[in-house]
Amino acid sequence: MAGGFAKDGAVQEQIDASITDEINRARSRLPQGESALCCDDCDKAIPEARRLAVPGVRLCIGCQELADKAQTASAGYNRRGSKDSQLR
């Protein structure tokens, strides 16, 4: 039961839309194409097992760990206008 101007199920729709947005964002960051033989950053050889396990890989494990740590997930803003996002 929704109160005020919100229709029934509006909260669940907002949750579903947020999850879908995050899934699409994560999928867009996955490597695509053919794997590199050497790391793009340090030029070390990328092991064959890694190239087979992660299609489109461009970095060795060490450089990938550094890239993952440097990358921060941005919450962005809530374009659906919930009060929670307005309080931040």
Rank of each mutant, 00 (worst) to 15 (best):
R29H: 09
A36V: 00
G62K: 07
R80W: 10
A67H: 10
D68V: 08
G9M: 13
N78W: 09
V11E: 12
S35R: 02
Q86E: 14
R79Q: 08
A49K: 11
D68C: 11
I46Q: 00
Q71G: 11
A67Y: 07
G76A: 10
I23C: 01
C42A: 09
L30G: 03
A36H: 03
R51W: 04
R79G: 14
Q64G: 04
R50K: 08
K83T: 14
G62M: 01
Q12F: 09
C42V: 07
T72S: 14
E48R: 04
R88S: 12
C38Y: 11
D41G: 05
I46K: 01
C63Q: 04
F5D: 13
L37G: 07
C60A: 04
Y77N: 13
A70N: 12
Q14I: 08
L52G: 04
E22C: 08
L37I: 09
A67D: 07
T72W: 14
A26E: 01
A6F: 11
G56C: 01
I15L: 12
E34Q: 02
A36S: 07
E22R: 13
R29A: 05
A70M: 07
T72H: 15
Q86I: 10
I19P: 01
Q14Y: 06
A36C: 05
L66F: 05
A26I: 03
T20D: 12
N24E: 03
M1F: 13
G3K: 15
G76T: 11
S74I: 10
P31A: 02
V11P: 03
D40Y: 09
T72N: 13
D16K: 14
L59S: 07
K7G: 15
N24R: 08
E22S: 07
P47R: 04
A2F: 15
R29D: 03
C60I: 01
V11Y: 13
S35M: 03
L87W: 04
C39S: 07
R88F: 10
Q14W: 08
A45M: 06
L59K: 06
G3M: 13
Q32K: 05
D21Y: 05
R51N: 03
N24S: 06
G81T: 06
N24C: 04
Y77E: 12
E13D: 14
S35T: 04
D68H: 12
R58Q: 01
Y77F: 12
E34S: 02
S28Y: 07
R79K: 11
D43P: 08
I19T: 02
S18H: 12
V57P: 00
A6G: 14
A70H: 11
D40G: 03
V57L: 03
G81W: 09
F5K: 15
E34K: 00
N78P: 07
P47K: 04
A75T: 12
F5P: 14
S74C: 08
E65K: 14
D40N: 08
D41F: 02
R29V: 06
Q71N: 11
D40W: 07
S74R: 14
S35D: 00
D84P: 05
S85M: 09
G9S: 11
